[in-house]
Design a protein around this nucleic acid. Structure first.
Lengths: 230, 230
DNA sequence: CGTCTCCTTGAAAGCGTTCAATTACAGTGG
DNA sequence: CCACTGTAATTGAACGCTTTCAAGGAGACG
């Protein structure tokens, strides 16, 4: 199921590997727990949540099949919960080096985690509710294969906490997309994308034709002093 | 000085390593360039910016001494620019494996990048302008050592694009903090933190227990820091 | 001294939140 | 089968924060 290079496979063999099954709504680990394992999703969806001091919940990611989560150094700074029934593969962290947990996690796993974090940053960077919601739908659609329908097994509240909006705004925005003919709904969880280009434009990711590559910054970096080290 | 383990050092020796010097405002690389190097900041501050299709600029991070940036797989999805005069150490990516660039980047570097990405997510997850601005000031202060004054070499516009606000809101929020006695300014770039606990509370990161000003927050903070809780 | 860039501030408009009510639906027990 | 219950989703209306539009000020530099 999991695709690792041969080198990574031999590394992984040294780790304790377990399959974990959880039903919808249950917790994989809590924020503040000792972070001695990380996980890869075999099937289902997991959400990672960070609770701030004032009680605000921030959803730092939805993790689908082959995604990894739980790569924290000391204690988990977010909790992880099953959005659907899930099967996970658990990996033990190597013993803590001087720099904290470091050994035993293959490069590719860290890269995937970094990739995932970046997706969240780009999502949150969109300005308006419609921007963020459209970008989110596109992201979910791309993960599921754009094909026909997109499933949203998470609640509106989950989406809201992921996009830093309220569930009301999420609901209203989805309704607005339906009115505009961008998508249609078959129940709250089943979305059909009718007009992908329109969604892309709404997300702010379409090229407005008008400007090619507005990068007036001079690339004056060929000449600066450059010296090789050690 | 870069601190790497002996194993990482031997790995790093296989890489091409160069020192790069850039003056304020110049570009390290552009979004869309082929991503064949990553960088570590030796001195100064670098910002990484992502430009969306509609022209909106998102600032994905400020990178201080010892921070790394530029760890992209194929082409850079953000550009990197010098906020101040900077000295960087450039590392060549290993040759591209089947999974894209993977070899040659030590675990610790990927971990630092992941850490950095998470900080951005947590920042953007704060709800209001005051929340995000306070959290940003605290983050910058912690990086610089809380000590006395905090320097903000980046422009208000940079901060705005990092927190997903407008420069007007950033400016107004800073002014409000001054009015409330949380900070004082000595020129736009020099901040002195007068009431760290108040800032923490504003960021939403204080425990609800220590919430004294639950409701109104009048502008009677004029008196500098003193007993906030009990 | 003029120009430039950056920062600050006022006023009005727009958008998202908050408060509040209604609807839809799954599960449960009569 | 149907009422009852609880959770999730939708929608309306008013409020308020952030943006937008507009103007003015503070330094740096030639």
């Amino acid at each position: 199921m999991i695709t690792l290079s041969t080198r990574e496979c031999s590394e992984a063999r040294r780790l304790q590997r377990h399959l974990v099954t959880l039903t919808k709504g249950h917790t994989v680990y809590h924020q503040g727990d000792s972070a001695d394992c990380w996980y890869e999703v075999v099937s289902g969806i997991v959400r990672t949540c960070h609770i701030q001091g004032d009680g605000h919940r921030q959803l730092t990611g939805f993790h689908y099949t082959n995604d990894v989560f739980g790569l924290d150094s000391n204690t988990y700074r977010e909790s992880a919960e099953a959005v659907t029934d899930v099967i996970l593969q658990r990996f033990a962290n190597g013993e803590l080096g001087a720099a904290g947990r470091s050994n035993g996690v293959p490069d590719r796993v860290l890269e995937k985690a970094l990739e995932s974090a970046r997706r969240s940053i780009f999502l949150l960077g969109h300005r308006t509710a419609a921007n963020r919601m459209a970008a989110f739908l596109i992201a979910v659609a791309e993960r599921s294969g754009i094909s026909a329908g997109v499933k949203l097994p998470m609640t509106r509240s989950d989406i809201a906490d992921h996009l830093n909006l309220t569930l009301h705004t999420v609901s209203r925005t989805i309704s607005e997309f339906v009115r505009r003919g961008l998508i249609s709904l078959d129940g709250p969880q089943n979305v059909r994308i009718l007009h992908l280009e329109g969604l892309r434009a709404t997300a702010g990711e379409a090229e407005p034709e008008s400007f090619v590559h507005a990068a007036p910054v001079p690339s004056s970096w060929d000449d600066p002093c450059e010296s090789s080290a050690a």
